[in-house]
Design a protein around this nucleic acid. Structure first.
Lengths: 215, 215, 215, 215
DNA sequence: GATGAATGAGCGTTCATTCAT
DNA sequence: AATGAATGAACGCTCATTCAT
C-alpha cells in the first residue's frame, strides 16, 4: 500500500471511493497544499489525476465541495483519537504525572502530523478564508478538544501537579509550546536535523520548569 | 489623521504616495487580508479604492508587485525597531534580568502587531505561496533577527540567568510562547476579554519557571 | 460543398476539424485578411464564428497559434504541387520549351491563388511582423522552391533556350513578371475585366522577348 | 545633419516642426515599420521619442492622424519628382530612347526608396487596412502617376521604340520588372551583395529584349 | 506647449461549471 | 460512471485618449 493510499485510508476510512475519486483527491491535496486553493484550477487537478475535468464535478458539485470533502475528515481524524483514546486513558489514569501525559501527547500528534502534513497545510491556509471550514473547525475541533483539554488540565491541577492559574491560560501556554515544537519541526524547518526524542524532552521540561536557572 | 493614515505612514514613512495610491493600498490591504491574495480581483480593489482599474497598473506593473509593495516594508519595519533599539538597549544593559527583557519584547511587538494586523495576516498567508516574499522574509527578517536573538540569549546564559541548552532550542521555546500569546491575543481570539498586563506577566513567568508546582 | 468548405478542405486535407473549429477558421481568415491580425480581436472572431470566445482558446492556445495554424498549411499546399508535380514533369521533359513551362506555371499558380486569396493576403501582411512565420516561410517555401526554380532555369539554359545570365538574376526577372501579373490580377485590380488567356500570353511573350520592337 | 534629419527634411520640407514633433515622427516611423501600426502603442512611441504621451496627442488628435501625417507626404514626395521632373524631361526629350529613360527611372526611384525605406514599408503594410490611406494613394499617386506613365509609354510606342500592345499591359510588365528589382534589392534581400549598375542594366535589357536566346 | 496621472473600454486568456454523448 | 467540448463571466492587464497642472 503506497504512502498516498495510507493517507487516503486514514482520512476516508469508512467511505467507498472509486479509483478515479482517489486519484482526484490525491491530486487535489497535492495542488492545494502547494499553491493554495484559490490558485489551483480544476483543470490542473484533472490533469494531475489523469481524469476528465467533468469527472471531478460528477463527484463534487463544486470546487469548494472538493476542498471541504478533503479537509473535513481531517478535523475528525486529527482530533478523534486524541479525544477518544486519551480521554479514556486519562480517566483510567494511565499517566500518573503530567510529564508522561505531555510526552504522549506530543508523540501522538507527531505521528498524525507527519502523515497528514499536506492536508494540515491546507486547513491552516484556508480556514481564515472559508467560513464553512472555520465553522466546522470551531464546532468539531476547537470546542470538543478544548473542553477535553481544559478538563485534563483541571485534573492535574487538582492533583497538585500544575500551578493554580486559569485553565485557559495554562492551556494556551502548554499548547503554544507543543504546537511551536511541531510547527518548527514539520513546517518551518523540516529539513534541519532533529533529535526528536531530545527536543520532545526539552519541550516537556520547558513546559514544566521554564528556562530559569534553579538554585 | 485616520487609523489607516497612521498605518500607511508607518509602512511607507519616507515614500511619497499620491492620494490615489494611498486609497489603492488601503483597499488592497483590506481585501487581501480578508479574502486572500489570489481570491481578490484587481477590479474589486479598484472599486473599493474608488479609482479606475487602470490606475492600479499605472502605479504597480502587476498585481503581485502591489502585494510585494505592501508587504515588503513591513518586513523592515516589523524587525527594524527590534534590532536597532533592542540591540543597543541590550548592549547598554538596560535590562539587567531576562524577565524585564521579555516583558519589553512582548510589549514592543504588541504595539506593532496591533497596528499592522491586516498586513501581518497577509504576510502569514502568502509567504508559503510566494517564493519572492519567502526569500525576502528569510533574508531580511529571519536571518538578521535570528542572529540577534541568539546573541541575546547567549548573553543571558553567560550571565547565568538562563539554563544551559542549545541557544536554538531556547529560542524556539521562548519564541513559541511569545508568538503563541500574540497570535491568541490578536488573531485567534481578538474578541475575548484580555487583561494584557496579567497575561503578559503569566507568559513571562511561564517562560522562566514553567507550569510545575514548586515545593 | 460551399466555397469556404473547399478552401478548408484544401488547407486542412487530412486533419479532422470539428464543426466549431471550421467556423472559427473561416471567421478568422475573413477578419485577419480584412483588418489584419493585430487589429482583429478574438471576441470579433468568436462572434463572427457564432461560438463562445472560450471555444477559440480550447482549440488554439493563443491567438497567434490560430494565425499560424491557418497560414502554415498554405505554405506546404501552395508550394507542394509546384515542386512535386512540376519537378517530375520537367525532368520528364513534358515541356520541351520554356514558353510552355511558363504558361503552365502561371496557370497552376493562378488556380491556387484564386482559391487561397484571403489566406495569401494574410501571409503577405504578417510575414514581416511574425518571425515565426517568416522562418517557416523561408524554411519551407523559399528555400525548397528556390532551389527547384534555379535548377529548372539551369536546365533551360543548358538546352540553349534561355540566355546566359546568373540564374539568380534570371529567376528574379521571371518571377517578378509572373508575380506582377498575379498580384495585379488578383490583388490590386481584381475588379477590372481581365482576358486571362491573353494577358498570360502577353506575360509569357514579354518574359521571352521583352518590349522592344524587333526588326 | 543626421540621416534622420535628412529624411524628415525631405518628407516635411515646408512644414515647421518643433523639436519634440521631429522626435515623435522619427520614433513613430521606426516603430510602425518594425512592428506594424496596430501593434505599436503610443506609449512606446512616447518613450522612444523621449516625450510625454500627452505630447503626441497635442500634435496629432489621434494615433491614426499621426500615421497619416507620416505617410501622406511620402505619397507626394515619392511621386512628385517623377511627375514634375521627368514629365518635363520627357517632354523636353532628354531621353531619346526607352532604355535611357528606364535607367533614369530606376536610378531615380532607387535613391528615394533607399532613404524612405521605413516609411515605404509602412505604406505597403497599412494601405490594405486604412481606407483613408488607400483613397489618398489612389487619388494622388496611382491616378496621376499612372496617367503620366501611360503617356510616356504611348510616346515611345509612337516613336516606334515599344511594341504595340495595350499601354496598360505594357505598363504592368515594365513596372513589375522595375518594382521586382527594387523590392528584391531593398526589401527582400537588402543584405545580399548587389552590383547595382549591373543588375539595373540586366533589368533594362530584360524589359527590352526578354530572356530568349536571339539567333 | 508640455506633462503624466487618470481613465474605462477592450484586450487575450483562464476559469468553474454544464451537458450531450 | 466518465468524458471533453462548450460556455460566458471574470480575470489581469494594456490601450488610446483626456485634462488639470
Amino acid at each position: 500500500m503506497s504512502e498516498d493510499e495510507v493517507l487516503l485510508q486514514q482520512l476516508f476510512e469508512e467511505e467507498k471511493l472509486t479509483d478515479k475519486q482517489k486519484k482526484i483527491i490525491i491530486a487535489a491535496i497535492e495542488s492545494f497544499s502547494e499553491k493554495g486553493y484559490a490558485a489551483t484550477s480544476t483543470n490542473e487537478i484533472a490533469k494531475k489525476a489523469g481524469v476528465a475535468e467533468g469527472t471531478i464535478f460528477r463527484h463534487y458539485k463544486t470546487k469548494k465541495e472538493l476542498l471541504v470533502s478533503i479537509v473535513a475528515p481531517l478535523m475528525t481524524k486529527l482530533i478523534g483519537p486524541f479525544i477518544v483514546n486519551d480521554f479514556h486513558k486519562v480517566l483510567d489514569r494511565p499517566y500518573e504525572n503530567v510529564e508522561d501525559f505531555l510526552r504522549a501527547a506530543i508523540k501522538n500528534r507527531s505521528d498524525i502530523i507527519k502523515k497528514m502534513l499536506p492536508v494540515i497545510k491546507i486547513v491552516i491556509q484556508e480556514i481564515p478564508f472559508q467560513p464553512e471550514l472555520r465553522e466546522q473547525f470551531i464546532e468539531q475541533v476547537a470546542r470538543k478538544t478544548f473542553e477535553r483539554i481544559l478538563q485534563v488540565i483541571k485534573d492535574y491541577q487538582d492533583k497538585g501537579q500544575l500551578i493554580e492559574m486559569p485553565t485557559l491560560s495554562v492551556a494556551r501556554l502548554a499548547i503554544s509550546s507543543i504546537f511551536g515544537f511541531l510547527i518548527s519541526r514539520y513546517i518551518l524547518f523540516p529539513d534541519s536535523e532533529w533529535d526528536d526524542e531530545l527536543e520532545t524532552e526539552r519541550t516537556v521540561q520547558f513546559i514544566m520548569h521554564g528556562l530559569a536557572v534553579k538554585d
